[in-house]
Amino acid sequence: MNPDRPGYAFGRAGADRCDGLRSDPDAIRALWPDGRVILIDPHGAAVAQGPESSLDLYLPRGRELPDLLAEASLLGRDADGAAWFALPSERVGHLPEGRIDLRGAASGLPSLQAGLLAYGRALLHWQRHNRHCGRCGAPLSLLRAGHQATCPACRSDFYPRTDPAVIVLVSDGERILLGRQASWPPRRYSVLAGFVEPGEQLEETVEREVMEEAGLRVLHSHYVASQPWPFPSALMIGFTALAEPAEPTCGDELEDARWFDVETLMAEIARGDLLLSPRISIARYLIDDWLRQRGALASNPNV
């Protein structure tokens, strides 16, 4: 497993976020004319162009939107030094009709564009849902290239929110535990996950979620990797955990939870009786790595 080069979406997109430029309006103004602008609609999809079967991001340059720099958010610069910005699509008229949602971007766009779209989507979601001060109710003003909101009335400052959640591959040493929610597509199983609560260590979240969802006691856990998951603002923090080999007992969130050894898992996948999480997710990364360590993927590359 190499979390420095993740096999899932949105990780290490290859852009410098340029924190030092966010408070430098002259530098941002100089980057704007040649900058690429990702236009994101209120539903979080990016404006796209081209045939439906092969949509590409519609990326106007800043010079084509000369009056909108003040409403744009700087995302950073790519390896070639080009600047990237995010802008609400409703501020621009006469746009192409195509749209790419984030899941489509994860599988269909270059990693740089998919990662920057994920970043821009989360940032604009925060801006759109935090227009007024949470303390006094006054309208907020955006600063630092869209990364800070300040209240001119009471001087309170606000920053983009990220919601941490653990996602954990549970094993008893020989088998892994997979569960499914009733709302998922038929036959879909995945690893367990849940949000971190206030005042809680990540390891405590792992232990609590596994007990709540499957009734199993975790003996120990280890951090593996993380994945931004802006639906709308989660950060998935990946763990592996060793649990007691008891029979799982489902809580309110799962309709089923089962132990799978390698042979059973591969056989059910081959028969079409079980579907794993999409490859864009860290959930699939954790499962694939467990299989890879046991030589299963090498002999079954299409899993």
Rank of each mutant, 00 (worst) to 15 (best):
S281L: 13
A267F: 05
L276E: 06
D261Y: 04
E253S: 15
I280T: 12
S277D: 15
A243L: 00
I282W: 04
L274D: 04
L291D: 02
E244C: 05
A246F: 09
F231S: 11
D273N: 14
M236A: 13
S281C: 12
W229N: 09
F231M: 13
L235K: 06
S281F: 15
G238M: 01
R284L: 08
S277F: 09
F239H: 03
A243P: 00
A234E: 09
G251E: 01
F231N: 12
R217W: 13
T240W: 02
G251I: 01
P245D: 01
L291C: 06
D288T: 09
R292D: 15
L265F: 01
P278I: 07
M236T: 07
H222E: 15
P232K: 03
G251C: 00
A243G: 02
P230T: 06
Q227A: 04
T240L: 02
C250F: 02
L291H: 04
L274V: 09
A257C: 03
R292Q: 14
F239S: 00
S221T: 09
L291T: 07
L275N: 14
G251T: 03
D252S: 12
V218I: 10
E255W: 01
L274G: 03
E247A: 13
H220L: 11
D273E: 14
A283Y: 07
P232W: 07
C250V: 14
R294I: 02
T249M: 11
R292A: 14
L291S: 03
R279L: 10
R271I: 04
G272K: 05
L291Y: 05
I237H: 03
W229L: 11
